[in-house]
Amino acid sequence: MLSKFDKMLFQVIGAGVFLYGLIHSILLYFIDSDIELWFYNIFGKSPSCLKGQVVFITGASSGIGEHTAIALAKHGVKLVLTARRKIELDRVKRICLEVSKGKLHDRDILVIPMDMMDINSHQDYFEQAVQHFGHVNILFNNAGRSQRAMWEEIDMAVDKEMFELNVFSVINLTRVAVKYFNDRGKGHVAATSSIAGVLGVPFSGTYCGSKFALHGYYNTLRNEKGHKNLCVTLLCPGPTFTNFLTESFTGKPGEKYGIGTRPTDKRMTAERCGELCAVALANKIPESWIALFPLIPLVYIAVYFPFVFRCGLKILGPEALFKLRDSRDTSVLNEVHTV
Rank of each mutant, 00 (worst) to 15 (best):
G260F: 14
N283R: 05
G274W: 07
V17N: 01
P297L: 09
L173A: 03
E287S: 12
Y207K: 13
N219P: 06
P253W: 14
D32N: 11
G63N: 03
K4R: 13
H215T: 08
Q131W: 00
R328W: 02
E161S: 15
K228Q: 15
P113M: 06
L292V: 13
H24V: 03
M162P: 02
K266F: 10
I42G: 02
F307G: 01
K74A: 01
D124K: 12
A191Y: 04
R222Y: 05
Q147I: 03
V308L: 15
M156L: 11
T261F: 04
S194C: 09
P237D: 06
I87G: 08
V77E: 09
G260W: 14
K252A: 13
D108A: 03
I296V: 15
H24D: 13
E275C: 05
N166R: 08
C49V: 15
N219H: 13
V299I: 15
F168N: 09
G185I: 09
E153T: 14
W289I: 10
R94W: 07
L214N: 02
R148A: 11
R184H: 02
A177G: 01
V303I: 14
T330K: 14
F56T: 04
H122T: 02
P294N: 05
D265F: 10
Q11M: 11
D326Q: 10
I290W: 11
R107E: 14
E335C: 13
L333S: 10
E66I: 06
N141S: 12
F126W: 07
K160A: 13
V167Q: 03
H122F: 03
T220C: 12
E247P: 00
L245T: 13
Y125A: 14
Q147H: 09
V158C: 10
T206N: 12
L333G: 11
